[in-house]
């Protein structure tokens, strides 16, 4: 049952090449996924601004369009307004806790350093030990890193709060039961005559294609994330044959071989979306001309647009708030370790100081 603990051990050159390769891979994956997500956000934004698909579903003009009902259901299933209300309420407390831990840690250092400086000025050359100022430099650098990270988090909190405040009303409406949701949407003259028209059918098929593209994108994201390829053997072979590793050449070649197919499919997916969206915009103009435009219809359309945008914002808000909560909790653990280091070194310095004072008084 012997297991070789050192089975995975490799020469340092291999380890360094592997970590650079993994960084390249992570960058490639993150960039590709970010492009897809940005494209989906853009697509949702365009549809919301055109009040699609609600506009072409809106047969009666006084009932909730199907897509809005689905969006309402999706929001409610994720916990509705209570979820984001609670998460946004917790953020300031999480931030404050982290700040307090950091401030307290640095306070330990400040107090001991001040005492050390006083004794140095009092005993001068007889105060023979490394100044605390010198000793604490690395910890203070680490402390300022934490400060920077917290400042960035505060900026992120502000973005989330602004999005929450601007979208909360629409989200709250989406969370209502259907009857109340319907009451919250101004009614307007029905667009019944439009239903059979060619432009509505064109819009419906274009929207269906768009849904397909978004589904394909989700699949692509999963596929890209699930690819696994170990470069160790390739690097070991190169080291054995050539005595050195041309990491960049090997990595770029392998990344292209493993991910090239996916990035091409992603590019085709994004290009297809652009074509469809421009077709949708053309068809929508035609649809708008044919539709009776009156104040009630415009008001109704505005509310439907807000609700669609509210749904998209809700999905993003929940993700941002969960990310922020996890960030603060993870940071707290790191800060508690930092605090432990500060109090340990200060304790040691105090002990040393007391002994030095005793010696001085005796001498």
């Amino acid at each position: 049952k012997y297991t070789d603990l050192f089975e995975k051990m490799v020469p340092l050159a291999i380890q360094q090449s592997l970590s650079i390769y993994n960084q390249r891979k992570a960058d490639l994956i993150n960039q590709t996924i970010a492009r897809m997500r940005d494209s989906t956000t853009l697509c949702n934004g365009v549809l919301a601004s055109l009040n699609l698909p609600a506009a072409i579903e809106d047969v009666s003009g006084d009932s909730v369009p199907q897509s809005i009902l689905q969006k309402s259901k999706a929001v409610i299933e994720q916990g509705g307004i209570q979820t984001i209300d609670q998460l946004i309420r917790d953020l300031p407390e999480l931030l404050q806790r982290n700040k307090e831990i950091l401030d307290e840690s640095l306070k330990f250092l400040d107090e001991e350093e001040a005492t050390d400086n006083d004794l140095k000025s009092k005993f001068k050359e007889r105060w023979q030990r490394t100044p605390s100022t010198e000793l604490y430099k690395p910890l203070r650098t680490e402390g300022s890193n934490f400060r920077n990270v917290l400042d960035k988090a505060i900026t992120a909190d502000a973005v989330v709060k602004e999005r929450y405040q601007s979208q909360r009303e629409a989200i709250a409406i989406l969370c209502k039961p259907e009857a109340e949701l319907n009451a919250a949407i101004p009614s307007a003259n029905p667009a019944k005559t439009m239903q059979g028209s060619e432009v509505v059918n064109t819009l419906k098929s274009l929207l269906a294609q768009l849904d397909e593209i978004k589904k394909e994108r989700e699949q692509l994201e999963n596929d890209i994330k699930s690819v696994n390829f170990d470069m160790t053997t390739k690097f070991l072979t190169a080291l054995a044959q050539d005595g050195a590793i041309n990491e960049e050449a090997l990595s770029v070649t392998e990344l292209d071989r493993v991910y090239g197919g996916y990035t091409d499919r992603v590019q085709r997916n994004l290009t297809k979306q652009e074509e469809i969206i421009s077709n949708i915009q053309v068809s929508h103009q035609e649809f708008s001309k044919m539709k009776q435009s009156n104040s009630e219809a415009n008001l109704r359309e505005e509310v439907l647009k807000k609700l669609a945008a509210g749904h998209d914002s809700y999905i993003e808000l929940v993700a941002n708030l969960r990310e922020g909560t996890k960030f603060y909790n993870d940071l707290t653990e790191i800060l508690l370790k930092f605090q432990g280091k500060c109090s340990d070194i200060v304790f040691a310095r105090k002990t040393e100081r007391d002994e030095l004072l005793k010696d001085l008084q005796q001498s």
Partner: peptide
């Protein structure tokens, strides 16, 4: 992502 990464802080720790 909206929030800063904590990886650098963890790496600091490993290096120290």
């Amino acid at each position: 992502s909206l929030y800063p990464s904590l990886e650098d802080l963890k790496v600091d720790k490993v290096i120290q």
